[in-house]
Amino acid sequence: MNRFLKILFIVLIVRPLVLIILGLNIRGREKLPLTGPAVIAANHNSHLDTMVLFSLYPLSAVHKLRPVAASDYFMRNSVIAWFSQNVIGIIPIGRTGKANKDEIFSGCHEALDNDDIIIVFPEGTRGEPEQISKLKKGIFYLVKDRTDTQIVPLVTHGLGRALPRGEALLVPFNCDVAVGESLPTVNTSSELLALLNDSYSSLLKDCLTYKKIK
């Protein structure tokens, strides 16, 4: 990743887009992890989710933010792959499920060892606007053997109205961001997903734009 390009991208595009064209209602900003290793487990409705997270961080720390992203989508051609890796700084991950777990997560572990803050979308896909799909277990296996890494749940709401999947027209809407308490360590993936689901539903209740969509 090129740190300079990422800062340029955030200053010229991400921040004006997120803070002026959109607009954020933020709850629990102080709970965002500012240093790694950490995992932010966010819900996923729009490509804007990642942009919103970038805009929340000071420019001195944005190079630490590494979204985990599907390689079949974000590496689909050389231009997008170059942008995803050099500007956004994604950690590509296969979602075919064929490779073994150590191999799949090697990029993530490398980043966490480097004190990065990685962004994971446990739903695995953007799904239907403003609905949280079934969470996937991968996040549990990612942190299972790491005692140094905490999971911070984060919910965004309203971005699926501004730019839903499959739409090219961006319509300005204020969006909510709510950050939760980091999750305690648990032994099974189902416990972790239950905690995460609970955290998401309580965070959603803090959102000003919640329950306003039919």
Binding site: G23, R161, P164, L169, F173, C175, T209, K212
Partner: peptide, 19 residues
């Protein structure tokens, strides 16, 4: 307008009209 339209109920199909 952005604030108002964000807190009230709108349908996904209204995005173009909002635009």
């Amino acid at each position: 307008l952005k604030e108002f339209i964000s807190i009230v109920e709108t349908r996904q199909t209204d995005r173009n009209a909002v635009f």
